[in-house]
Amino acid sequence: MSAPATRPEPTADECAAADAKATFDSLRPHLDTLVARYPQRAAALLPVLWHVQRARGWLTPRSIREIAEYVAVPQAQVEGVITFYTMFQDHPVGRDVVMVCKTLSCRLRGAEAVADALEDHFGVPMGGTTADGRYTFEAAECLGLCDMAPCMLVVDADRYGDLTPESAVKHLEDRS
């Protein structure tokens, strides 16, 4: 189970900004194709959450209400699913979420020093978001990239391996 969130409640402005990125109606055509893949509507919940999260950055209270209605499940189920999976975000996150692996194969090759360097350089602990809103960092369990250990993954985008404290910082500084 993912750790309980200790972050402050999102502000009304933060919610409105995320919701403004895409109206639910504009997402419907694609969502309909997802629902069509399953014999039961509720099964589309994970793919629908992914699609809305990609469009709006994170899953706002409004998104949760809209999704619950759309896939026809109780809101509590949507919330339960979001909190169960580490990659669903119910708080504002940076433009990119960076998962930094902390599990054994990476630890054996220096993952701890990599995480320390990222925290020092970007000035936020794991779990935090940089002041400019560019990155959210998360300490992650094995990313399945143990051949590239130590490694990190920019969610939905790029992976970086064979990291040193310096190269990890540089990879992220070099991303536009």
């Binding site: 039961q40 919940l45 669903f88």
Partner: peptide
């Protein structure tokens, strides 16, 4: 979406069903 236990075969089914 990030949960090791979904690799357990029945956890996987629960996850496909939207839970």
């Amino acid at each position: 979406a990030g949960a090791y236990v979904c690799g357990e075969e029945t956890g996987l089914l629960s996850s496909i069903e939207g839970g």
